[in-house]
Each structure stands twice: as C-alpha cells, then as structure tokens.
Simulated scan of single mutants.
Amino acid sequence: MRMVVALGGNALLHRGEPMTVANQQANIRLAVQGIATLAQTHELIITHGNGPQVGLLALQAETYKAVQPYPLDVLNAETEGMIGYLIEQALRNQLPDRQIVTLLTQVEVDGNDPAFAHPTKPIGSIYTQSEAEQLAAERGWAIAADGAGYRRVVPSPEPRRIIELGAIQLLVQAGVLVICVGGGGIPVVITATGGIRGIEAVIDKDLAAALLATSLKVGALLLLTDVDAVYTNWGTPAAQPLRHVSPEQLRRYSFAPGSMAPKVEAVCRFVEQTGGIAGVGRLQDAAAILAGQAGTLVQSLHRSSG
C-alpha cells in the first residue's frame, strides 16, 4: 500500500527535552526503526512537524541584532532541510539499498486567510505563564496555553496547493522514498503577476499531510505523535481512547485547538475525500496502528462495516 507517514515535531523532540541535535538524532533513530519496517512492505512518503525546531531558530535569530530576524517562511525552509537531513540519514542506515531524498516543498496559502488575524499555531519552547507574558510584551508575540505551560502562537493558514507536487509524484513513481512537506511546507502566496512569495506563517503539518495524501491518492495516512491515541475528555478522569472510529463519529467530539483538533480534522478530511484509512498514535506503534491493534484507526462507516 502507498501511504503518507507524518512524524510529529513533539515526537522527534520530546516535551521538556533539551533541543540538542544529539537528542533529535537519538529520537529519530528510534522513529525510523518502525518506519523502516513499514517500508519493507509498503510504499512510503514521509512528512514531519517542526514546531519546536522553528521556534528554536526564531529564538536564536533574536540574539543577533545586526540584521532583522529571518521570517517564518525562511525558518521553515531551514528546519525542513535540517530535519529532513536527519531523517534521511537515519533511514539510509536502516535501508541501505533504497533511494531516499529530502525535497524542500512550498505550499500555497491564501494571503487573506482569516488565520493571519488569529494566531493559533504553537511553536518553540514551553514557558511558564510569567515567562511567556514577559516575552510577549518584549517581542510582540501572541501566546497561548499549551498543557501546563505557555508557548508562542503564530498564524496557521489553510494549505491550498503543494507547489512541488509534480516532482514528488515523479520521484514516488521512480521508487524513491521521499521526505517532503516538512513542517507543513514553506508557506507561500501567489502574487498578482503569478509569481511566488513567502509569507510569515506556519502551516499546520497535519492538514498539510492530509493535503499531500489526498493529492497523491494514497491508501493510508498515519499521523505519528507522542500520544498513544485520540482521546475523548482528554486531561480528565473520564478520558477514553477511541480505537476504531469513522469521521462522522469523530466530528461529534471537541478536541484541543492547535493540538489534537488539527489531527482529527486531517484524518477526517483524508478519509472523507479518498475513502482510505487513517491512523493516529505513537511512533513506535506505527505498524500496529495500521493493523488496528493500537492507536486510533479512522475509516468510513461503509468500509468498516464491509
């Protein structure tokens, strides 16, 4: 089966973990073990998150005052290359006979998307409330609660079109394992003259993964993160995992914005638009999620009953 596998940024760099290259390399080595197993019997296209990493680059840029900080589209390109390189190298060590390539990918958004007026996408480190409020005052950030802490939030417009889709299709057809649309892709808009221009935003990587999977007409979409399943009543004593569920059933529940909500929306869109299957769960459970033995497996009512 051909499938898109999306690796969450917080799964590659665990919450509260120092953002060192060594930590990311260690986490990615563990992540690709499961991916390499899947690649033995399935055709994979890999994408990934970059929230912690793009936030780190933004913080590092703030310390050098000789030039203006780089915009988020450029930072996204940097992290797409960096994380793609780490994943590609780890995969090559697991799959020495496979052709693997990382492709910097631009994704078109609408410059008038309402998201630009309402930042929601968390990036960077987790702070205490007082730390976050101080940084927001100093740097003009928007901040929001994230678990027990607070993070910077930035605009997250809807992904509309993958600019390099044709190149991705050619590589996949040639048998290449492609790592692409990292961090949701590099956000760009189309100008009045038909050109392409980067824009200050971070595209949600789950929605971009759904767009990638739908555009490529794959059979499955796996969203692999640091949470073992989609839960109802998350964070309360009544929390319950959803194991086998349809998009119709998922849409009856509410989920945390900027966290599980985009994942739920992504898998619902993919299943509704393609009739394929989608899964959400932990990196180490990838094969079990696909088999319906772990995580949350999402498929249409018709398919699940048939």
Rank of each mutant, 00 (worst) to 15 (best):
E80W: 03
V67H: 14
C180N: 05
S130P: 04
I83Q: 11
T214P: 00
R269H: 15
K217C: 07
E80G: 13
P247W: 01
D110C: 06
A210C: 06
R139K: 13
Q173S: 15
A148V: 13
I196Y: 03
V107S: 04
G295E: 09
Y150V: 07
A192G: 14
I163G: 03
A287R: 09
L242F: 00
Q53I: 05
A36T: 02
E78M: 13
T120G: 00
T102A: 12
T47P: 03
V176I: 10
Y231K: 06
T79C: 14
E200L: 15
E133G: 00
Q249A: 15
L56D: 11
G258Q: 01
L222I: 08
E108L: 04
A266G: 10
D73S: 07
A210K: 08
W234Y: 14
G49F: 07
R29N: 10
L297Y: 02
A39Y: 02
R92Y: 03
A90Q: 11
L242G: 04
V267T: 15
D226A: 13
H118I: 12
Q40T: 10
P71H: 02
P187V: 06
L75D: 15
D73L: 01
P237C: 06
P122M: 01
A266L: 10
L57S: 01
V188S: 00
N10A: 05
R282C: 13
A287I: 09
I35H: 03
A117Y: 08
L177I: 08
V267N: 04
P18Y: 04
L211A: 01
N10H: 02
A167P: 10
V267Y: 00
N112T: 07
R15M: 07
A210I: 03
L30Q: 14
R92M: 15
L7V: 02
V32I: 11
S215N: 01
S125D: 06
G183S: 06
E131S: 10
K65I: 14
Y127V: 09
A201Q: 05
E133Y: 01
T274M: 00
A208F: 12
A145L: 05
A167R: 15
R152V: 14
V5H: 00
G195E: 13
G34Y: 01
M82T: 13
R92K: 12
E131N: 09
V153D: 02
L222R: 11
G258D: 04
V176D: 07
G306C: 11
L223K: 10
G185N: 11
L56V: 12
I28F: 04
Y127S: 09
V298P: 00
Q273K: 08
L57F: 04
I87D: 04
L12K: 02
M260W: 01
T102W: 05
D226S: 15
A144H: 03
G281R: 01
A220H: 05
P155Q: 08
E62F: 06
P187K: 04
I35Y: 02
W234C: 11
